[in-house]
Design a protein around this nucleic acid. Sequence first.
DNA 1: CACCATGTTCCTTG
DNA 2: CCAAGGAACATGGT
Length: 283
Amino acid sequence: MPELPEVEVLARHLRPVLRGKTIRSVQVNRPKVLQPTSERELKRVLTGAKFKSLSRRGKYLLFEFRSKTPGKNFTLLGHLGMTGKMFVAEKSAPPPKHAAVVLELNRGNFIYEDTRYFGRMTLDLSSAEKLGPEPWDKNFTPEVFARELQRSRQPIKVKLLDQSLVAGVGNIYASEALFRAKISPKRAANKLTFTQVKALHCAICKVLAEAIAGGSTVQLNFGGGKTDGLFYFGRAPGAENYYEERLLVYDRAGKPCVQCGKPIKRLVQSARSTFFCSGCQKL
DNA sequence: CACCATGTTCCTTG
DNA sequence: CCAAGGAACATGGT
């Protein structure tokens, strides 16, 4: 469930649910999601610790803990990879097939589930430290963005997935932002005009903010139910599928562009799908 | 069987 | 040192 908006909505959901909860025991089913932290180390540190606060950085979750050992507070980093979910379930509920880690609370279990196990739950914070600015950070300005883009000849779509430029944009919102900024995904990063950079900067912020706002109002299911936990597949009562309504180009190959009616095209860049409108996004 | 999937990291190659 | 390209990770859906 992984781009910035989904992680932000999840963080807002979990924050009040976890605050003040103490971890009774730790069950690790897939040690690979902890690396480079060892199972032994995670259990030692986490058992008896109490959730203090939760924040988000890019697509990462940062869980702040108060250690049972005074003065040894620490941070746990979470990442959902492609298919990760994190939620609290009743202890009586059967554990999901791909539960990678289960943190037992006094009431309920905090579960990190991940079918493909591409995500992380670890004490190593180095990945989050390498990230570029948050989209709304004062350090993420059109000027800074333009300077960074100047250094690359890669297609702009590919460059947007580089988390050191701006943190949190993934494969879906990269296509969406470019469509809204009316820029071709194939355009070389260093060939954007400053006008285009400003439009893209604005589109990134807007697309992500709208997705967060949309996701927050939808009926969510973070749990292990039949839904996939992706909030943009959630439904508001009586409403159509929000995914269809909100995404203008992603996964819409062949369907008419909402702006000009031409069919949306799909292309592959760096082994990932890109969706765009050749009428609205000229090179 | 083939191809697709919301992400990151590691290893080459130039 | 750096940019860029590709494979790897692992499982499931169509």
